[in-house]
Write a protein that binds this DNA or RNA. Sequence first.
DNA 1: TTTTGAGTTGTTCGA
DNA 2: GTCGAACAACTCAAA
Length: 498
Amino acid sequence: MDAKPTIVWFRNDFRLEDNRALSQAVLRGAPVIPVYIYAPNEEGDWPLGAASRWWLHHSLAALDDDLRRRKSRLVIRRGPALEALRSLITETGAVAAFWNRRYEPAISIRDRRIQQGLESAGVLVQTFNSSLLFEPDELRTGRGSPFQVFTPFWKTCLSKPSTEPVVDAPRQFVSPLSWPASLPLDSLGLCSRIDWASGIRATWLPGEAGAAQALVSFCLNHLLSYEATRDKPASVGTSRLSPFLHFGEIGPRQVWQRVNAVRARTEDKSIWHSADAHLRQLGWREFAHHLLYHFPHTPLEPLRPRFKHFPWSSDAGALKAWQQGLTGYPIVDAGMRELWTTGWMHNRVRMIAASFLVKHLLIPWQEGARWFWDTLVDADLANNTLGWQWVAGCGADAAPYFRIFNPTLQSTRFDSEGKYIKRWVPELANLPSRWVHDPSGAPPLTLSAAGVKLGENYPAPIVAHSFARQRALAAYQIVRKEKEYRLAFAQSSLQIDS
DNA sequence: TTTTGAGTTGTTCGA
DNA sequence: GTCGAACAACTCAAA
């Protein structure tokens, strides 16, 4: 038996179950050294946001606890990652390094470099897929190009042989004779000194146990009626697994298996529909990673180049109102405040709030993406990019440009009693539900009876819907005609040439 | 190469 | 309140 240790490098796969790199390392029979390396400036243009750092801190603490329960531990180091790995190898005499692959552009370039660096020094490197059902290179259209439309992408996924089975968490680890030094978790400075995270702390339990609990609870209580309730932000209708999936405290294969198990136990068509609808959401996660991998420029630039010429406006005041939940559109404000308080926003409300920023305010989607990146506990480069480009109409399979959400209508449709609004915008708590979606339309007496003073304790709408809608349509006309402009330009330059 | 069919999540208008 | 049609049109994926 090889007594020289194997390093398992953890990176957004903070779990013991269904972790290929870990289980394969344990199988070697040699001591296993679990490592985390904090290297924020190796994440390209996207160092972790504040909410993500909070989650990471607690995720690492939870992983360390879980490892210690198995007589192991997590060794924490700072980057650069290659140097950290090299010195660990020197200190411990390790001969192998295993990790699960990440697919973000900057990270995969870095990781290939690290792999080469270690292999050239004689270290055995093995990497695995633990975070996707299908890796970006596995799926191609008939012509061999990457997919840009979701439905054929997902059909192709579903036509593949069923996903690999989930691997159990290793029962026991072999420890090294002595443990290499580890930085204290607190020294990474992931949690800011001012405790702004109380709302996040009250909402979430980071770590593998919290993830497992969230999945069980979802399958037991919400999956059965997922189709009916997933669009209702006032109720817990969605799985709320996104941060756990992002940090790899649960993997998509585990979700896939569990949801399919529920599906297999019933003949009830409505449950089948719900299960399929939820698996489809996993499909979107896959699609987002597929797109980011094949179109690595998209976090900063539109996938459809003609949108580079979109007449965006830069209105710092409006951006701030949006960020603070003070737009005067209750459903938007409720969402933005839920985000600020809990680090998460309901999917339906994300679309409404994002659409409002991009279409009502004409503020670049990149500004919205940046804010979400900083405030979401589930901030994920692939998902965030896909979502914002979809809303802005410049991405893959995007909403057509003329599809402009009416926040008031969305609100009456999906939060009809105004429960969600009243929870997050307490200024409006005493308004009758009929008016809570659009206080500016309420009779003055109703407003004063409810203690609402528009412009004083709750803002009037910062822009009128019908005006904003017309303005957005007009702005999109410019992008729409870009093709014609280009043609005209080409012709005119031909004329100049001749 | 060309053609054909289809595409997460909508809104507004008028009856 | 509910219903259907119009909106306006692009691009991808597959045959």
